[in-house]
Design a protein around this nucleic acid. Structure first.
Lengths: 126, 126
DNA sequence: ATCGTAAATCGTAGATAAACGATATAAGGA
DNA sequence: TCCTTATATCGTTTATCTACGATTTACGAT
C-alpha cells in the first residue's frame, strides 16, 4: 500500500474499507484493532449480499426446496434469466450459496454454515 | 402509479421491488403472496442498511456507549462529517437508529426493537 | 444581535449495482 | 455431428451509493 498518496488533490477514489483510518490514538471505545474489524467487514459483506429482495427471495426458495433448484428460480421471479444469474453470483461470492454443475444445469443450495455465520455475527456484533 | 407505461421502449427504469411479477399461477413454492413478501423486503432493507462496514461500525459504537454519541462517531471513523451524517441517515431511515436533538447536537442511539426485528426476521426467513 | 459549534443538506464526481438483451459456453440427445 | 437446453458472461444503460467540500440550519453563549 501507499503506492501513491492520492490521485491528485480531489476526493479519494472510493476507499470503502476504512481499515487504515487516520486516528493516531485516543480511541473512545476499547476495541477497534485490525483483528476485530474483520468480523465487521464480513458481516457487512453478508448483509450487503442479502440487501436485495430478489436475493432474499432466492435464498428462501433454495431453503424451501432444500436441494437444487436451477432455472426454476428464474420462473419464480419476475426477472430475466441473466439478472437472476447475476444475483446468484452475488450470493455465491458472499459464500451464501453454492452451485454444483450437474450436466447441462447447475444445482444451487444454501450454504448452511454461512447462514449460521451470519446469525452468529449478528448476535456477536449487534 | 401507472402514470406512464414506461419511459419509451428500452429496459424498465429500475423496478427493484419485484412485487408485481408476471407469473399468473403455478408457483412451485406454496407461499409467495403479497403478505408474505413484505417481511422479505423489510429484511432486505435492514440488511442493505447494514451492508456497509462503516454502518456496522456505527451501530457497534452506539451500542457500546449505549447512550448518545454524536460527533464522537465522526472521530471514531476515518470519514468526513458529512459522510458520517449520510450513513446515520441511512441507518435512521431503516429504523435502526434514532436521533434525539439535544441543543446544538444530536444524540443517536440504537433502536433495540429494530435490532430484534432483524434477528427475528433472520431466524424466521432464513 | 453576533459568534461559534454541531449537524444536516447540497452539489458533484466517481464507483457499483441492477436490469436487460444478445451472445457464448457446455453438456445431452438426435 | 448438429440441435436443444441450461447457465454464464458480455455490453450497455440507468440508478444508486459513497465520498468529499461547501453551505445551511439550529442552538447556546457572548
Amino acid at each position: 500500500m501507499t503506492i501513491k498518496p492520492d490521485i491528485e488533490e480531489g476526493r479519494r477514489p472510493q476507499v470503502l474499507s476504512l481499515e487504515g483510518g487516520c486516528r493516531p490514538a485516543g480511541s473512545l471505545v476499547p476495541e477497534a484493532s485490525e483483528e476485530l474489524r474483520a468480523p465487521e467487514e464480513r458481516f457487512a459483506a453478508l448483509c450487503k449480499a442479502l440487501g436485495h429482495p430478489a436475493r432474499v427471495r432466492i435464498m428462501r426458495l433454495l431453503l424451501s426446496v432444500d436441494s437444487c433448484v436451477c432455472g426454476d428460480i428464474v420462473e419464480q421471479l419476475p426477472l430475466a434469466q441473466s439478472t437472476v444469474s447475476q444475483h446468484l453470483k452475488v450470493l455465491k461470492e458472499a459464500g451464501l450459496v453454492e452451485g454444483v454443475i450437474d450436466g447441462p444445469r447447475t444445482c444451487y443450495g444454501v450454504n448452511r454454515e454461512a447462514l449460521a455465520e451470519l446469525k452468529d455475527l449478528a448476535d456477536t456484533l449487534l
